[in-house]
């Protein structure tokens, strides 16, 4: 009797969020995959029947440069973000609680400030009439006609800028739990600060590194707003193509085929990580 009440209580408080996510998250995601196999109609909608045409167009070699660019920009963003975030997380975990709260606030505020505003800030900084160009030119570090905007470098810089907090926050969470006595022990045993950091701290926060890598890489893969505003015509990523298929070409099935491919690209690393973590836990228990 009590057990039955327990069960119905569980369903009662689980159902609202479960149903909401089922209807507005799972079904839409499945719908994208299904729509990828549907023909388009002329009014921007989805026609009846089935087709493999959308999927086949993905095999066009013209996609390769875009795919490659999406991958390398995401990978480079991830590497730089994690490399910068590691010492920051290390430092944040070592200072006193008040300063730590303050540092955390400093990291969170740019992260919570409007995404477009952050892009806009960089767009005006990198503008030919902007501060950064003027400073670099006056220091003779750049030629008079330097163009800092509308190139892959600008896209990478702004991607690093917007993704950095996504790397700092999980790494800080891991560093907070790290036992810093291990570091002192390594130093006592003769390791230099750099060696102790690399051989003791970095392996100690590897789970944090893993979540930072997944967060940054996955979010970067779907990026399209940054290339749109600070990139040139040749810096488009997969996301730009999805957005153009939806809004410029009004071809939802084509966009869905691309989105489904992106979804697979996102889910794959996560499944690998999940499997690796499960395997790792078993290994640790043994």
């Amino acid at each position: 009797m009590r057990g039955a009440r327990h069960r119905s209580g569980e369903w009662l408080i689980t159902l609202p969020s479960l149903a909401w996510l089922g209807v507005f998250f799972v079904i839409p995601a499945a719908l994208v995959v299904v729509t990828a196999f549907r023909p388009a109609d002329l009014h921007g909608g989805v026609a009846a029947g089935w087709t493999l045409e959308n999927i086949e167009t993905l095999r066009d070699p013209a996609w390769l440069p875009i795919l490659w660019r999406t991958l390398w920009l995401s990978a480079a963003t991830t590497v730089v973000c994690v490399a910068l975030a590691l010492p920051v997380a290390f430092q944040m975990a070592r200072v006193g609680p008040r300063l730590r709260q303050f540092l955390l606030l400093l990291v969170v505020v740019p992260f919570l400030s409007n995404f477009l505003i952050r892009i806009f800030a960089w767009k005006s900084l990198l503008h030919p009439e902007g501060v950064l160009t003027k400073v670099l030119v006056s220091l003779h570090l750049a030629p008079e006609d330097a163009l800092l905007l509308n190139n892959a470098g600008a896209v990478l810089l702004v991607m690093i800028y917007t993704q950095l907090p996504f790397a700092i926050l999980p790494l800080y969470a891991a560093a907070e739990k790290f036992d810093f006595h291990l570091l002192d022990a390594a130093r006592d045993l003769g390791a230099g600060p750099c060696r102790a950091f690399m051989k003791v701290f970095v392996p100690g926060v590897r789970r944090g590194i893993l979540s930072a890598v997944v967060m940054v890489f996955v979010c970067s893969l779907g990026q399209y707003v940054i290339p749109q505003f600070v990139g040139g015509a040749s810096d488009e990523m997969l996301g730009n193509k999805i957005q153009q298929r939806v809004f410029a070409d009004r071809n939802l099935p084509q966009a869905s085929a691309l989105a489904a491919a992106l979804m697979a690209a996102v889910l794959l690393p996560m499944l690998v990580v999940a499997a690796w973590q499960r395997f790792g836990r078993k290994e640790g228990a043994a």
Partner: peptide
């Protein structure tokens, strides 16, 4: 277990996929 997976997945889903899939739902 299922519930927790459903709650965590949107956190790592790129925005463009979430927007695109909701648009697909509303169009269909």
């Amino acid at each position: 277990g299922v519930h927790s997976m459903l709650v965590t997945l949107p956190l790592v889903m790129p925005d463009i996929l979430m927007g695109m899939s909701l648009l697909a739902l509303f169009v269909v």
